[in-house]
Structure formats: structure tokens, C-alpha cells
């Protein structure tokens, strides 16, 4: 899935599903049990629904989560934990960076440019065309270019995540995917579909690899 890259950074507009996808990639890599998996939450923009909320659950599955300074997880205090630097030292680990939303997610990554320029890294943009600022492909491409400049890394691919949560349908996935397919500038890596809406025939029908997402971020009434 991640090719021969040791690191993968997930970026995109707010609420396109970056965290859900980051957690799912980490879970899949951990399940392969080849290497130690570290999930780094670099979302300093949005403080609700971040992957650090699931730190304990992920730890049980062998994923180390590095997020804001310990003890300040609920604080309106977007500090970076000093232990982030260890991911660059531990060369035998696989690393997933969950970046913050919008153009600014790339900025935090740029902070580690001196380390990243010696690493092999994917920078993948999650796109849900049913979200604001992803509704038009030209806006999506402009955002990708902006993130790339901010991160000082090229965007290496797109993850299509077309959905409307519990109102997702096959037709809607198809419609969203068709739109994302029209983006010429970046290669489409795979489609993500939430497990409730996944059907095995989709892979063939849509002619694209699919990552089935398990739902990790749930509401109290669900």
C-alpha cells in the first residue's frame, strides 16, 4: 500500500477523513507485523476528533501514537511533543503523519524538513468532493499545490474518499470518484470506502484498489 516508503503523510482539507484514514493505514501496517508502526498526530489546527483520542486503543494493537505534549491532550494548546524527533532516529519503524486540515497542515511538516529531506516519504492528499473546498477540482489542486509549498515536499498521490457518512450510496461513491478521476495532476492511489458501504464487486467495477475503512471515530449516541 505504502510502497517502499518508510513514511507517509496524510493531508487534505478539513474533515475529508485524514484522521480516519491515518488510523486505518496504521492499523493495516500493524496487522502485517513487519515493522514497528508509529502514528504521529500533527494536527495542531483542529482539537476535536484527533487520533490522539484513540491513543490507548491503538497502543493495544501495537501502534505507538505521538501527539501533543503529554497531559495536555484536552488543552487548547497545540504544542508538539519532543518525542516526535524519535521517528527520524528509529530507522526500522514505519511512520504515518496525520496532518492538520487545510493549507496549513503542511506547515508543521516543514518544521522537520532537515530530517525529511533524507527520508523516503509519501505525501497523500485525501479528497472528498462532497466537502467544502473540495467541491471543485481546481480548488482541490490549488490546495494540493499550497500544501506542497508549505510542506516543502511534492504531493505524491491522491486518496479518494467520497462519502456522505450515513447517507453514502454506491451511486454517490461512483459520482465522487468520477470527479476525482478528472484530476490530472496527481496520481490516484486508491479509493477508501467505509466497511458498512463496501461491496467486494466495487474493486472491479471502479477499476481501482480499495482500502476498506473500519470506523474508529464514533459519536456517543452511536
Amino acid at each position: 500500500m505504502i510502497g517502499n516508503k518508510r513514511m507517509t503523510a496524510i493531508c487534505g482539507a478539513f474533515g475529508t477523513g485524514k484522521t480516519e484514514i491515518s488510523v486505518n493505514i496504521a492499523l493495516k501496517l500493524a496487522a502485517e507485523q513487519k515493522k514497528r508502526v508509529i502514528l504521529v498526530d500533527l494536527d495542531i489546527v483542529n482539537l476535536y476528533f484527533r487520533s490522539r483520542d484513540k491513543r490507548d486503543a491503538l497502543a493495544a494493537k501495537g501502534i505507538k501514537v505521538i501527539s501533543g505534549a503529554k497531559g495536555f491532550e484536552n488543552a487548547d494548546l497545540p504544542a508538539l511533543a519532543p518525542e516526535i524527533l524519535e521517528v527520524f532516529a528509529q530507522k526500522d519503524s514505519l511512520v504515518i503523519f496525520d496532518l492538520g486540515g487545510s493549507d496549513y497542515g503542511g506547515t508543521v511538516l516543514s518544521r522537520f524538513n532537515e530530517y525529511l529531506k533524507n527520508e523516503k516519504i509519501n505525501l497523500w492528499l485525501v479528497v472528498n468532493p462532497f466537502r467544502p473546498f473540495n467541491e471543485k477540482n481546481e480548488d482541490t489542486v490549488a490546495m494540493a499545490e499550497h500544501i506542497s509549498r508549505r510542506a516543502r515536499l511534492p504531493v505524491s498521490g491522491i486518496i479518494a474518499n467520497p462519502h456522505l457518512m450515513n447517507q453514502t450510496t454506491d451511486a454517490l461513491i461512483e459520482q465522487g470518484l468520477a470527479q476525482i478521476n478528472r484530476i490530472q495532476k496527481y496520481p490516484l492511489k486508491f479509493l477508501t470506502v467505509m466497511e458498512d458501504y463496501y461491496k467486494p464487486e466495487m474493486e472491479k467495477e471502479f477499476e481501482i484498489p480499495i482500502m476498506v475503512l473500519s470506523k474508529n471515530m464514533i459519536q456517543p449516541w452511536e
Binding site: 462532497f130 466537502r131 467544502p132 456522505l164 454517490l172 459520482q175 470527479q179
Partner: peptide, 16 residues
């Protein structure tokens, strides 16, 4: 595009 979009409550306030 779909007549519905996926939005955060805050974004929905702003757009509306």
C-alpha cells in the same frame, strides 16, 4: 454535484 454536502456544524452555520 450532489445536492447535499458533508459539513461540520460550524461550516454549516457559516454557509447558511
Amino acid at each position: 454535484m450532489s445536492e447535499k454536502v458533508l459539513m461540520k456544524g460550524n461550516e454549516a452555520v457559516a454557509e447558511s
